[in-house]
Amino acid sequence: MMRVVLATHNAHKAREFQTILARGVSELEIVTYDGPEPVEDGATFAENALIKARFAAAHTGLPALADDSGICVDIMGGAPGVFSARWSGRHGDDQANLQLLLDQLADVPDAHRGAHFSCTIALVAGGAEETVEGVWSGRLARAARGANGFGYDPIFLPDGEGGASAAEISPERKSAVSHRARAFAALTPLLAALPR
């Protein structure tokens, strides 16, 4: 069994990674990270994911995974981007972040409300570093809709979902088509190639 540390203290996220990756990689155990947190001061999702993965790999001696993700609005030059979780100034305040973004786009016509979710996963193992990215394109609604999901899901209208928000589609559907699902699909062959 190969052990890979996930650079998070969030046991729920570790279980999610384990479940998704087990479909494509046999004999893989995802473990949570119990060490100190690095400063995420990268300017891109890839930089932040690598900072976390390098830190966890150095601290544990295990191959390490880390992810960074957020929403990128076309008319805002890709913002909030890496600042998605703290857009309102308070880290992790989903409702305040979502409301601020809606307020900032209040006068923007529907034709210019294009956006995408982006997820980058970094893998650091044996001195090698890899990053993979998943992108989920769509546009932003004018008001929150739906009870599934979290973060910006209630205002994100993904392409190909008939106008439903990411918080209105089923969790199963979301886990199959989201930015994270696409990043995981690109990550699986990298993990499968690691020496056992």
Rank of each mutant, 00 (worst) to 15 (best):
T188K: 07
G81T: 08
H112C: 12
N97R: 04
F184T: 01
F156L: 03
G138A: 06
V108R: 02
W87N: 00
A143W: 02
G146C: 12
V135Q: 07
E161R: 14
H59T: 12
K174C: 04
A144Y: 09
D159T: 12
N148F: 13
D41I: 02
N10R: 10
A22L: 08
K174D: 06
A181R: 06
R173S: 05
A115Y: 03
G160E: 12
L187P: 01
A125D: 06
M1F: 08
G61Y: 07
E172R: 13
S137P: 02
S175R: 15
R180Y: 09
E133D: 13
P189L: 09
A122N: 01
A144F: 10
L191C: 10
C119Q: 01
A56M: 06
H59K: 13
K13F: 13
H9M: 02
I121R: 01
D110E: 15
A66L: 06
L21C: 10
P36A: 15
S26V: 09
L28V: 11
G127F: 06
E133R: 14
A141D: 15
L98H: 06
G162T: 00
D107Y: 03
S26R: 15
L140C: 01
L100A: 08
I169D: 03
L157Y: 04
V5L: 09
D103G: 11
R3F: 00
L105D: 08
V82N: 07
S88W: 10
A185L: 03
A22K: 13
A11W: 00
T188R: 12
P80N: 11
P189A: 09
V25F: 12
I51K: 10
E40D: 07
G114R: 15
A22M: 08
H91K: 14
A66F: 04
D110M: 13
L191E: 07
T44M: 09
L6K: 01
I169K: 02
S26H: 11
A49F: 06
T8Q: 08
A166C: 11
P63E: 03
Q104H: 10
Y152D: 06
P158Q: 05
E161Y: 07
A96Y: 10
E47Y: 00
I51C: 12
A125H: 05
L21K: 11
R173H: 13
A183H: 05
G134H: 08
P171N: 13
G35S: 10
P63T: 03
G149S: 09
G151D: 05
L102M: 12
Q104K: 14
E16S: 04
K174W: 05
L62E: 01
Q99L: 13
S175M: 12
F150I: 12
T131Y: 02
F184M: 14
Q104G: 11
D67F: 01
Q18R: 02
G70W: 02
G42Q: 03
Q18M: 01
G24P: 00
R23Y: 01
C72M: 14
M76Q: 12
G81K: 06
D67M: 04
F45S: 03
C119T: 13
E172V: 14
F117K: 00
V31T: 14
A7D: 04
H12M: 00
A141S: 15
R15A: 14
W136C: 11
P38N: 08
G163I: 08
L100N: 07
G114F: 05
R3D: 12
L157F: 05
P80S: 10
D153L: 07
A53Y: 04
H112Y: 10
